[in-house]
């Protein structure tokens, strides 16, 4: 048996510091600048697009409502893939699993942001255009469901105890991803069996050529914005994971090496 005297030897799996190189920070900055330009141009396009026949200026809400609703269906997929990867990699590749979990929480949070905006703009538009805040038609009900699912995901994450968070959340993420298509189909069947008034004759069905460019610019703007905040939230989560690791290591080292401290 060898007794180690003198200073504690460094652990062989030293925790690597977060790679936050200059390159990625400046890339983020450039992307942010570009996003702001596209967003400004999109806003300009939205304001100068010709007035709509029935709704007048109110329809311009669509230029911001539509990108958010469309994009809020992309982030849940990221969450699903990330949750599955976490489950697969948890034992075999813990470092990659941690990255997967960071993507999962980032994409879930962005989903909640985008779907909240989609719901809010939709309700404001609906109230002004058709006199009602809400209708239980297929599209709106499914959308509300999407919002509820990912809000419940975020609540599970905040209620979970310490190191369990990633694990329980990944399971819920998989279930939520399975649930979304089932929800969509069953709600669609519900509403076609007993047809109810459909809001607005279908968004996107009557886009005039003159308005198409404004729609596309705003979709691009909010897609770029979504990528920006997704990446930032991911980086923030990685920093937090790193801080947690450091705290755990310090606690362990404090217990074991107290006579050498």
């Amino acid at each position: 048996m060898r007794f180690v005297t003198g200073p504690t030897p460094p652990p062989h799996d030293r925790i690597k510091p977060v790679k936050d190189s200059r390159k990625s920070t400046s890339l983020a900055g450039i992307w942010f600048g570009l996003t702001m330009l596209v967003m400004a141009y999109g806003f300009y396009q939205a304001m100068v697009a010709p007035k709509e026949a029935t709704m007048g200026n109110l329809y311009r809400v669509f230029f911001y409502h539509f990108p958010h609703t469309i994009l809020s269906f992309i982030f849940p997929y990221i969450n699903c893939v990330a949750s599955l990867l976490f489950i697969f990699w948890r034992q075999s590749k813990p470092e990659l699993a941690a990255k997967a979990d960071a993507w999962a929480v980032a994409s879930a949070e962005i989903t909640v942001v985008y779907s909240t905006v989609g719901l809010a703009t939709g309700m404001l538009w609906g109230r002004a255009a058709w006199g009602i805040w809400w209708a239980w038609d297929a599209r709106l009900t499914t959308y509300l469901l999407l919002w509820l699912l990912y809000v419940s995901y975020m609540m599970l994450r905040s209620f979970a105890a310490g190191g369990q968070t990633a694990m329980v959340a990944s399971v819920l993420g998989v279930f939520a991803a399975i649930d979304v298509p089932i929800c969509y189909m069953s709600i669609h069947w519900w509403r076609t069996q007993h047809p109810a008034p459909v809001f607005g004759g279908g968004d996107g069905s009557g886009i005039d050529k003159s308005m198409a460019s404004a729609v596309l610019w705003n979709v691009a703007a909010f897609l770029m914005w979504g990528i920006f905040i997704l990446g930032w939230r991911y980086a923030l989560e990685r920093r937090r994971q790193h801080q947690d690791n450091l705290a755990t290591e310090a606690m362990l080292r404090g217990d074991i090496g107290s006579e050498n401290a």
Binding site: L145, S152, A161, Q164, D179
Partner: peptide, 27 residues
């Protein structure tokens, strides 16, 4: 079983169960 690993589990169970069960409830 999942909510065993959380604090406040009685509150959390309906919160995560209801959205997932909604298509079944509808049916």
């Amino acid at each position: 079983a999942l909510s065993l690993r959380t604090r406040n589990r009685e509150l959390l169970l309906p919160l995560i169960l209801f959205p997932i069960s909604l298509p079944a409830l509808l049916a």
